[in-house]
Design a protein around this nucleic acid. Structure first.
Lengths: 340, 340
DNA sequence: ATGAAAGCGCTAACAC
DNA sequence: GTGTTAGCGCTTTCAT
């Protein structure tokens, strides 16, 4: 492995000049730039990361901008992953600056303004509120520093990395899980437990993928679908009539346990349920047998990989994939505990 | 973060003495040992990994001791993972020394003797042949360097790390997948496609776990089991009679495709098949619909994590989990491609 | 048993 | 526009 000193020797210039060229600091003659670049290419120079970091002694400040955990179990998971990464990379100068907002648009906007003022080297962000997120990102991108999105993707935004699931494909998978039940007539309920404020695109994508599966499998004519909308995820809007004759239920978000709880309380049995995310309550019903399948988004890993992405890009100057779709993990009672 | 120099200052000794104490090189008075250790504890000293590696400039040689890929698609996967890790960690001085053997006991023993003579800092190893592996490990352990096993575990061996699946639990999971099919009478075939030479403990553990599930679920009385032994995985020993009236098949290893192929060729349809590993041929039958479930052992990740384990332990001096059970990944047609 | 000091390769400040 | 050099924190050799 060739060093800067040796490159300087070969090129008949000083190490300082080589350094200037490598870091595009300018103030070098074009002649030398070409000469040195040629040598770098020829010998395949890669800077010694130990020496570089030792001398540079730079701290890398990554801003994390996520919803607060207050009552949001799901959002604790990415934080756990981030903390794991933080510990692992702290020795490489990585510092995490946490910025949380309450799960509403007003709090988000307020915090966004603060985040925009922060001095940092990278951003990890979850675009929960789509419109506000786009405005925020457009502004933040002016900083010209790497941005990683987790959880939900905004495909329209350019130059921002994404780590998370493909919502459409996860719905497609859910449909397949539902299709396991082979009966003459299969009544499927799709229950949307929504919140006013949240980004609708994720669960709508999931439902789209869900239907898409049945469109691709026209032989499955014995499946009939009904959609139910439960605003504000209000349990009181559920009633036993809804479930009469129902064989399977698809709930395109993590509030699966609300339905499971209702079914249990009303002693409605024998319905196959497919939902999302390993929340404690969901796991409880998985254990107990009411929920059959959960699709795991691995939120902890998303957090970990988000920081790892920034670390590799900024600290190690490595090339990294712009988009990483998390595997679609099927969780049932018998394998949930192996999922870390 | 306190440095060696500062510790020396506080303790009124030279940096050399502090270094000797940190590395247990001896030749220091007990008085100084205690004094310095107290300071290290008080200030929470952690050595600067950049400076350390820069000065040390040590190469870490990890020996990889695995079966050769010749006709063994499965064993290419861990090698891919190892190569990925190798690239990633090469800048930290990690060098991989590959040692392959043919998939037979004689070749293994021959290579084992060579591996024992190698000068290295860590070992990544797959104990395919149990008895021979125990003899080898007992000998290798005298080197007092870290050893990681992947793929199959030998629980009797102490002080050796394991990264891979829990075979028993994966069989248990397979049983659950089989149990999805709800019919009045469910005839289940367990087909053991074996090779004389291989370690039987893995698939036997899987079968044990498989039965264990049905023992835990006594209500599933409608499942009846038959075991078939196909020695040398010989297709010619399969016949159509075996499959008469069969509803489900469990194949406790990666040779699932052999049965799938037979069923396809003989136009036997409607049998649910659960098997192991994402071999190309298995995927092909998964795509086409003959195989319903594959349990993925993530062999690539096992290889990657194995090297990563040694790297963290030796290069970074980090603490690492001794045993890491890989998640039990359920793969169906709709999610296999998301599994990297 | 202990201290002093060179050097690992890179960065950045300073001098010319 | 270019060269020189101190110093990052640790390891290791040599001297005492």
């Amino acid at each position: 492995m060739i060093t800067i000193k040796k490159i300087a020797e070969i090129a008949n210039v000083s190490p300082g000049t080589v350094d200037r060229i490598i870091h595009n600091r300018g103030q070098v003659s074009q002649e030398n730039v070409d000469k040195v670049n040629a040598i770098i290419k020829e010998y395949g120079f890669k800077k010694n990361i130990f020496a570089s970091n030792l001398a540079f002694n730079k701290k890398f400040r990554f801003v994390v901008f996520l919803p607060k955990n207050e009552g949001l179990e799901y959002w604790q998971a990415p934080i756990d992953g981030i903390e794991k990464a933080s510990e692992e990379f702290s020795r490489f100068g990585v510092i995490i600056d946490y910025n949380f907002y309450k799960y509403d648009s007003v709090s988000f906007k307020k915090m966004a303004l603060k985040v925009l003022t922060l001095d940092c080297d990278g951003l990890l962000f979850a675009p929960i509120f789509k419109e506000d997120s786009i405005l925020f990102l457009d502004e933040f991108k002016k900083k010209k520093i790497p941005i990683v999105m987790i959880d939900s993707n905004i495909k329209e935004i350019e130059g921002v990395s994404y780590i998370g699931q493909d919502a459409f494909k996860s719905g497609y998978l859910a449909a397949r899980l539902i299709s396991f039940a082979k009966k003459e007539e299969n009544k499927v309920l799709i229950i949307k437990l929504t919140r006013e404020i949240e980004n609708t695109s994720v669960y709508l994508q999931r439902i789209k993928g869900f239907y898409s599966f049945f469109e691709d499998h026209v032989d499955l004519t014995n499946f009939k679908f009904t959609e139910i909308n439960i605003e504000n995820s209000d349990v009181n809007k559920l009633n036993t009539k809804m479930f009469e004759g129902v064989d399977s239920i698809f709930i395109p978000n993590s509030r699966t346990h609300i339905v499971a709880q209702f079914l249990m309380e009303n002693k409605i049995k024998g319905i196959r349920i497919v939902g999302y995310d390993l929340l404690k309550k969901n796991i409880q019903f998985l254990e107990e047998g009411t929920i059959d399948f959960l699709i795991n988004q691995k939120p902890e890993e998303q957090g970990y990989l988000g920081i790892s992405h920034l670390y590799k890009k900024l600290v190690l100057n490595e090339e990294v994939e712009e988009t990483f779709y998390m595997p679609l993990e099927i969780i049932i009672k018998e394998n949930y505990y192996t999922s870390q």
